[in-house]
């Protein structure tokens, strides 16, 4: 079984974001990491690989620094590393078309990714890629397994959670999983360093050129400053706070 895991590199959640001249200064980001939910997708992919004797293909689309993340994925067990090398800004559908093309070229049986990436919090990629591939899609899953030729996954439902099944090529977007994430061991790290990363340029994917620049980045800014709040020692001002929330803010 060929298991594709889509990995997006984002500024680490603890990294400070600096804005200068209307643009986020990416060079000043202290640490880039695999987006948190992608770690759960990867872990689930590794378990599925172990259970089925499959091959885990890690795919990342982004600039050169993505290679480090792919190597990190190899250190915990990813077999094939594919880097779609792009530098500029892509819109959602461009990324999805690139990822879907690579998935098609690798005869993949199942695609695992994060439910939302930590940079834009979008949640577009999994369902979009599934649509392009004409695959089934289950979002926000916490577990996936392959049993009797079916994918069985657990997703939230209105009344709790539910177990669902899909046949054929399926895309799963991961919420927080149920398993502990594995950490690489020394051997894994050494082996990963030797692993070859297959680099692909989008122009070699055989896609028709899409109209570029449909989404133009005008500016990035620091979040609007909040008025400094009022901090009270002790509980004496609680009645005042309640009355302000009631009469000035109108929120209760």
């Amino acid at each position: 079984m060929n298991i594709a895991v889509l990995l997006k590199q984002v500024p680490d959640t603890t990294a400070k974001i600096n804005v200068s001249n209307g643009k986020v200064d990416e060079n000043s980001v202290s640490k880039w990491s695999m987006s948190p939910y992608d770690e759960y997708a990867l872990e689930s992919g590794l378990q599925m690989k172990e259970a089925t004797g499959g091959v885990l293909i890690a795919i990342a689309c982004g600039p050169e620094r993505n290679k480090k993340m792919l190597t990190d994925a190899a250190a915990v067990g990813a077999d094939t590393l594919i880097h779609i090398s792009v530098d500029g800004i892509l819109d959602s559908i461009q990324v999805q078309n690139f990822l879907a093309a690579v998935i098609k070229n690798n005869e993949v049986d199942v695609v695992l990714c994060g439910k939302q990436a930590a940079d834009t919090n979008a949640g577009s990629t999994g369902p979009g890629v599934a649509e392009i591939l004409d695959a089934a899609c289950v979002t926000m899953v916490s577990e996936v397994s392959f049993i009797e030729n079916k994918f069985i996954s657990v997703r939230p439902s209105i009344s709790g959670t539910e177990k669902v099944s899909t046949n054929g090529l399926s895309v799963f977007t991961f919420d927080k999983g149920v398993s502990e994430l594995r950490r690489p061991n020394v051997r894994g790290i050494m082996m990963a360093k030797k692993k070859v990363i297959e680099t692909i340029k989008p122009e070699n994917l055989g896609l028709e050129g899409s109209d570029s620049e449909r989404v133009l980045l005008k500016a990035q800014n620091s979040p609007p400053e909040k008025e400094p709040g009022q901090i009270f020692e002790g509980v004496g001002e609680i009645p005042t706070i309640i009355s302000k929330l009631r009469n000035e803010a109108n929120v209760i």
């Binding site: 400070k16 974001i17 804005v19 940079d119 919090n121 990035q220 800014n221 979040p223």
Partner: peptide, 8 residues
């Protein structure tokens, strides 16, 4: 973007 650390 970036969990509210910036906007675009």
């Amino acid at each position: 973007i970036y969990s509210g650390k910036a906007t675009e």
